[in-house]
Design a protein around this nucleic acid. Structure first.
Length: 501
RNA sequence: GCCCCCAUCGUCUAGUGGACUAGGACGCAGCCCUUUCAAGGCUAAAACCGGAGUUCGAAUCUCCGUGGGGGCACCA
């Protein structure tokens, strides 16, 4: 049993400022897997301390995306839990109290520097090719003096008092020990002048108070990782296990995806946003499988995983620290794999809305018969109406050119259609058992290839050159519809043949 | 500019000093199957960033380059 012996408490802590995307989805997945395989808890915490960046509806979208993927949280803003509240905007007094503790312990200080002066300092530092850093003006103000200025109503922030000497080492599970000189760590702001805590303080405090055992987050946090270690130590808290996931690169492998590029992707039927993937006909099972494997592997040959498989097999230690390019064709592959592994009636249920959205009235019983014959022909659910919409239309309008196979005249095609009609009309049913043998016999009599005759028939009854298997399709349509559509095709061919003279 | 991280086929990856003629998957190409399209089966092409070192032996360890990525906000 390689599973964690002690239950892990793991949190997914997004800020509600946009759509749930692939990166967030993967982090949440790994969080969930670790929690579930260890018998621990998966916690959803909303990091909404930046009030200006809030996006209406983002929190709800986040939750519905997670639910869609099957990542159900044990504690969170909607379901509550022992460590409530789970929205940082509702925990401000907690952060303030902790900031105060830090100040009293000499690990933080009040800073009255104006943004304008700071900007100037930064500019000069950059001119001297120095890293932009707080210049320490308020670092050694006495608490009494600071208090006096606060009482006078002077605007202030609270900064972390980073040690100026020595170095700090922190340990990332995947990268090992990371050591940086303290001189390179800024005196980061912990609490803004409007009283709202910033990530560095809020997340650290919450992770401790909520008993988080493993922090899984993006590698964009690596630069401030030593600071977070320092804050934990300043409080005297035990550190959790830190895991920094690699970033996702655009499919070309060159750089992170920009907003613009993310939007353009939609034109190709892809997206990095979960809500789009859902609409584009991807199965949550496929997205989960695909995303799990972007930066994690099990062995050298297993790639098909259900969520339950992943819970059993996921292992933090097999995470890959190097950046990974997003490979959408592999998503299509996994989607096909998962579509084919669905029970036909399950597939039919999932297909229903896609047919309806393309304006078709769908009979569920008929859809259940169709599901098995299109199951291995669709890569995404939204392709189904395109390939099987003809089942639900009253009539089909085959293009005249499609009714005439290459190398055949319209008169010849007409003859084939008429002979086919005669054969089918004399049959009690038009399915594989009843109709295939007689039709093959006709093919032989006509001295043609099966593809030629079946091709004409296919276009006549489906209106398409490409369709699910012919006789299976005809069986579902029913004898009357088949004959009616064939009559219609014969009429089209008649007018073509007469025009040609 | 400064700090940090990363480095195996086009892409995702296996590989933790000898079992490597470097394995799998996607994609691509060909073949088979076949009433179309798929699915499936088979085959092919395709990679250890470079240089030093350690070692009997290096894809694997060390160092230096190079390349790529991330970060340097009163955002997260």
């Amino acid at each position: 049993m390689k599973n964690q012996t002690t239950p892990a408490r793991v949190r997914f802590a997004p800020s509600p400022t946009g759509h749930l995307h692939l990166g967030g989805a993967r982090t949440a997945l790994y969080d969930y897997l670790l929690a579930k395989q260890s018998g621990g808890q998966f916690i959803l915490r909303i990091e909404d301390t930046d009030r200006r960046r809030l996006v209406a509806g983002a929190e709800e979208e986040l939750m519905s995306g997670l639910r869609w993927m099957g990542l159900i949280w044990d504690e969170g803003p909607d379901v509550g839990g022992a460590c409530a509240p789970y929205r940082q905007s509702e925990r401000q007094d907690i952060y303030l109290a902790h900031a105060r503790t830090l100040i009293e312990g000499g690990h933080a200080f009040y800073c009255f520097c104006t943004p304008e002066r700071l900007a100037e300092v930064r500019q000069q530092q950059q001119k001297r090719k120095q890293p932009p850093h707080y210049d320490g003006t308020c670092r050694n103000l006495s608490l009494e003096e600071a208090q006096k200025r606060i009482d006078c109503g002077e605007r202030h922030v609270i900064r972390f008092k980073t040690p100026q000497e020595g170095s700090t080492s922190v340990v990332d599970l995947l990268r090992g020990e990371i050591t940086v000189a303290n001189a390179t760590i800024d005196d980061y702001i912990l609490v803004k002048s409007d009283g709202w805590a910033l990530y560095h303080l809020a997340a650290t405090v919450d992770d401790h108070l909520m008993g988080i055992t493993h922090i899984i987050r993006g590698s964009e946090w690596l630069p401030t990782f030593p600071l977070h270690g320092l804050i934990h130590r300043a409080f005297g808290w035990e550190e959790p296990v830190w895991v920094h996931l690699s970033v996702f690169l655009k499919p070309s492998g060159k750089g992170k995806m920009s907003k613009r590029e993310a939007a353009d992707l939609n034109q190709d039927g892809y997206s990095i946003f979960i809500k789009d993937l859902q609409r584009l006909g991807y199965l949550p099972e496929a997205v989960v499988n695909w995303v799990a494997l972007m930066g994690w592997s099990y062995d050298d040959h297993t790639e098909f995983f259900t969520l339950a498989d992943l819970i059993e097999k996921f292992d933090l230690k097999r995470l890959n620290p190097s950046p990974a390019a997003i490979n959408f064709s592999k998503l299509d592959h996994f989607n096909g794999l998962h579509i084919r592994s669905l029970a036909p009636d399950d597939l039919a249920k999932r297909l229903q809305s896609y047919f309806e959205e393309s304006g078709l009235r769908v009979d569920p019983a008929r859809l259940e018969k169709i599901a098995p014959i299109i199951q291995e022909r669709i890569a995404t659910l939204d392709e189904a109406p395109e390939i099987a919409g003809f089942f639900f239309r009253d009539t089909v309008e085959p293009a005249g050119d499609d009714l005439v196979p290459k190398g055949m005249s319209s008169a010849e095609a007409l003859d084939v259609a008429r002979r086919s009609y005669q054969v089918l009309q004399g049959l009690p049913a038009v399915g594989v058992e009843a109709a295939e043998a007689p039709m093959r016999q006709l093919v032989e009599e006509l001295g043609l290839k099966a593809g030629q005759v079946f091709g004409i028939l296919r276009v006549a009854v489906t209106g398409q050159r490409v369709s699910p298997p012919l006789f299976e399709s005809m069986a579902i349509m029913g004898r009357e519809t088949v004959l009616q559509r064939l009559r219609n095709a014969i009429q089209i061919l008649e007018s073509m043949a007469s025009k040609q003279g």
